[in-house]
Amino acid sequence: MKFIVTFIILIGTSFSLQAQTSHTEPVNGIQWIRITSEADVVIKAHDKNEIQIVPERFRPVSEDKTKGLKRADTNDTDNTGIDFNVSRDGSNLLIKNLRASGGEKTTIYVPASLNIAVHSENLCNTEIENMEGEIEVDSEVSGNVTITDVLGPVTISTNAGNVVATFKKINQKIPTTISTTTGEIEVRLPNNASASIFMASMMGKIHSDFRIDDPKNEKKKITDQKIKGVINNGGVSVRLSSATGNIQLKTN
């Protein structure tokens, strides 16, 4: 009898432990996923109509010394059991990663069509893959931003963080804008992508293997640290700028 009880408790415990390895949230009525994080986050597209938050390593309950406590600075509580606070605000799903800077990487699986906004603090690196909606990343300190196989538009700003953004296609309706203070910017567009390009770096160097045409003869009006022109006859505005970082605009 004692054995059976112990067995049941063990099974129950393992289930509860398993339940805390990830968190799933429905996304009906949600248009924007807004993520705040100090620890690395990876956002990947999946086919389900829900989001799934999967930390790289889950913390056993026995190690969780913060259970039932609030983050003293932000008043955010862990309402998922995996050190995340998830809440809704209208059509926004707000996801707050409560793990400290430099903590474990977390992967968040999201329906591809949703819009993503990430506010990354401290050392948080952000990776976003295969998303089809709008992408906004604001890296406040030194986190790098890597965006792969997206359709745009993309709005990224970093301070010291480097940006690598690879586009499958580029949305022609809404502009794409990337700026850094000291970080490097590397943008890869399809060879046939049409865009109106503006690239500026006060101290960095600007390189490209695209043929940048200058139909309005505007290039001469600005210095060699600023490039204005069109690729493939022009299209949506793509603006890449940095104070001291280098900028590369490359073909895929």
Partner: peptide
């Protein structure tokens, strides 16, 4: 707009 991209579009 809540979208930064759309706000930039507006400014443009």
């Amino acid at each position: 707009s809540t979208s930064a991209g759309k706000r930039i579009q507006a400014v443009n």
